[in-house]
Design a protein around this nucleic acid. Structure first.
Ligand SMILES: [Mn+2]
Ligand SMILES: [Mn+2]
Ligand SMILES: [Mn+2]
Ligand SMILES: [Mn+2]
Lengths: 228, 228
DNA sequence: GACGATATTTAGGCACGACGAATTTCAGAA
DNA sequence: TTCTGAAATTCGTCGTGCCTAAATATCGTC
């Protein structure tokens, strides 16, 4: 079973299910429907087809999980997606808020040869422009740095940005505040009741809404590890 | 009318019609069918749809021509195709016998922004890896060097290869003989009755079948124009 | 004016994926 | 346990898109 045997819509379903099952639980029909912006009826129908192909296990009313083959195909698409995002950003200077949309189309049509050439050109990278890990060719994910959401981070210790959400609007918002991957920062105060987070950035400070802070992951910053 | 309004199959029909009408005559249904490997009935049906969209003019039983809009869309796809071919060859080292297949899929999904970035990266090139002209953004074709088929070339004068056919098999054959774009050569003798062509290449000679020679275009070689 | 080549129309098929409405199942509250 | 609302599934249908074989029509030529 290789990807030419399934449609691009199926490939997108597999990606969504992979993501929704990260935490270990089966992916509910409604969650898949919301993610892909289709009706629940459409999802039920597709799950049946994917189950017939043995790409998912579908326990009716209990959600869906990927089979080994389904996961392989999902990770292949995710590898394509993230490699393409990084390639576009690095080689062609596409800004990080536009790479996702482009990759969403290209991921389904590049050949395995092109995938390998892009990876080689980039030095077999481990992370995409948003800090998400790029699955290896063998289907393994590179180890992630221990990280937490900016919401969960304790105030007063040095942090650096390790990952941000895909959403173009968020990315442009972060650009406007000078926040990118690797940016060192520190939580100054967290206002209660969903108030903004005050963050120190270099010498300045800025306020981030909790919606944004929830979509930024940070890890402890080790200043002695800086280079150049 | 922009390309997102038509399917990739329609885009491929427009490309085929553009190519078949190069010589000025309308494209016969059967020629389109052969080119795209579909039945004549399919072509008649598609021509009707394309005519309804005012992308072709279809005089029944008299073949099809592109309208101004149809030509614009065809040339946009051809520009994508040839730019992608060159980009893959130059930036990623994809051999010239594989770029066509890859471009055939990518041409339909890249954004206009990506098209511009690739072109800029390549310095707004005029020719693809096979020597075919790359339509400009405004839809004009760059001037071609005066050239003729190797079959038609007179023996005994210095020539250089300016264009070759897309066909992967031919391209690998040429690779095997050390023939590429720009290669200087000279026709030594032409055997009659469809016999092979004897060609001098550097200090060696080689024989080319007429099928191959027909698909290679050459122009007079000007030795004084060599650089480096 | 008939013939063979070419093209079109007709009628139907198939893959794909989506949807609304009706129905079924589940899980938690009463 | 029974009820009930949320979640999921099934059912019937639609729509797009493209293709084909067979029947029919047209064209150019002899
Ligand atoms: Mn992405
Ligand atoms: Mn996709
Ligand atoms: Mn080509
Ligand atoms: Mn194509």
């Amino acid at each position: 079973m290789d990807r030419s045997a399934i449609s691009t819509a199926m490939q997108d379903y597999l990606k969504a299910i992979w993501d929704l099952t990260r935490a270990g639980e089966a992916a509910p029909t409604s969650a898949i429907a919301e993610r892909l912006e289709v009706s629940a009826a459409s999802v039920s129908g597709m799950l049946k087809r994917l189950a017939a192909l043995e790409l998912v296990v579908h326990e009716p009313y209990q959600g869906a999980r990927l089979t080994v083959t389904g996961r392989r195909l999902a990770l292949e698409m995710i590898r394509h997606h993230r490699l393409i995002e990084l390639y576009l950003a690095e080689a062609l200077g596409v800004p990080w808020d536009r790479v996702h949309e482009e990759a969403e189309k290209l991921e389904h049509v590049i050949s395995e040869d092109l995938e390998r050439r892009m990876a080689a050109h980039l030095g077999d990278p481990h992370f995409d422009p948003h800090g998400a890990p790029i699955p290896r060719m063998d289907g393994e994910l590179p180890p992630m740095p221990g990280s937490r959401t900016l919401i969960e981070a304790e105030a007063g210790s040095p942090l650096r940005v390790t990952q941000v959400d895909d959403d173009p609007e968020l990315l442009r918002y972060l650009d406007g505040h000078g926040i990118g991957l690797g940016t060192p920062l520190e939580v100054v105060t967290r206002e209660p009741f969903g108030g903004p987070l005050v963050v120190r950035l270099g010498r300045g400070e800025c306020r981030l809404g909790p919606e944004a802070a929830h979509r930024i992951r940070v890890a402890p910053h080790e200043p002695q590890e800086s280079e150049s």
